[in-house]
Design a protein around this nucleic acid. Sequence first.
DNA 1: AATGCCGGATTGGTATACCAATTTCTCGGG
DNA 2: CCCGAGAAATTGGTATACCAATCCGGCATT
Lengths: 226, 226
Amino acid sequence: MMASTGQQADERDILSRLRFAILSLDLVPGEAVSERALEAQFQVSRTPIREALFHLVRDGLVVRDGRSYAIAPFDMAEIDEVFAFRDIVEPAAVRLAAKLATPEQIAAIRHSMNFSHEEFTPERWLEMGLDFHVRCAALSRNRCLETALQDVTLRTLRARWLSFASEEGRATTHREHSAILNLIEARDAEGAARAVLAHSASVRLEVRDAIENARLFMGRRGIVGE
Amino acid sequence: MMASTGQQADERDILSRLRFAILSLDLVPGEAVSERALEAQFQVSRTPIREALFHLVRDGLVVRDGRSYAIAPFDMAEIDEVFAFRDIVEPAAVRLAAKLATPEQIAAIRHSMNFSHEEFTPERWLEMGLDFHVRCAALSRNRCLETALQDVTLRTLRARWLSFASEEGRATTHREHSAILNLIEARDAEGAARAVLAHSASVRLEVRDAIENARLFMGRRGIVGE
DNA sequence: AATGCCGGATTGGTATACCAATTTCTCGGG
DNA sequence: CCCGAGAAATTGGTATACCAATCCGGCATT
């Protein structure tokens, strides 16, 4: 069946618990799930399970085929689309951010960035939810940009989770994020846009590697596309 | 209480019925709603009502303040953000569309466009749901672009509904849409991008006008922002 | 042995019952 | 007349019961 994660009734809400189970590959990509099985596993009734599943479908971690649910497989094609999309939207977002961000906002991002980097635990990294890119997008003062980036960021959540397993990957990310933030602070819109594109390209490669490495752990159904 | 729309139990699913009630201003922007009141009005149990409300919150037609629901007021600031976002994303989408669209896809869009224009009924226009912009975005073969445009299009749904009350507004829209589609067909990526921007600007003005005109019908809570 | 049909088990969708928290109303004291 | 305390009603959140559709397996027939 499944491992240790979700048996005793945590305090955390069911959405977080389910998401964690998916991200940690406790629930296998490509595998079918049913509301009732989850109800039994997580010891909550179907109503909140259903609600959580809605969110997870929306976030792309669960897919529906007709009436039945399945854990979303890794979709290489989708990942390419996500990064292509980000390359359109994120440069525009940081250009605006470079114009509009206040020093306080920048400091706040830098603080939580360092905080979560120095004392890294999967739960914290996940709980904080809004990550760097979403918070930068928020600096653009355009909620559409912010939520679009958030949606799209969520779709690579599992892959990033995989690639964040190594301290090295985290360090690279932290360095590039710092650089972007500095450029925003310096009001260098074009520089920030370029840095974002470069960062995107490197993360894209990392993510694809991480999935390839995880390929062995997953059945043929676990990875699709391309 | 409320007008004629939703009393007898239609066949249509509750999400459509609720959305229609909101779009037609049967449910007043800014007004509080409760699951139980809707349950009584629409003669379905709270479970599907909750589900529908979840979708409507996601689409921006309903807002949550703490635990309670309210019909989303028109938000002028949000509308500006929506159009700013579209001006970033849509040109990129049609550029890709101009590269990738097949003649069949273009013909399909043109057909349903003319179809829904010639024999216009509010229900059909609404039911078809995916409208021109979303379908064009789909031509980019990037699902992120498609869903981002869809999300953002939904957020101006009520405003466009208002502006589509006049045959004149519909005709203008139809003409501009045709022009964009022709440019895509001609593989003129830059021309299509320019046409989209021009169209966006004109629609933006139309939409703001429509809301201003509707201002009188709505209480102070019905319009916020700016 | 292969196939097709039937029945039970499982599924998601819906209705309803129950609860705790919040809001609203009322009524008494100042 | 105003204000506040407490009770009653209303709210969203959750659990559960019920239903119809679907899926699956086994048995009978060929």
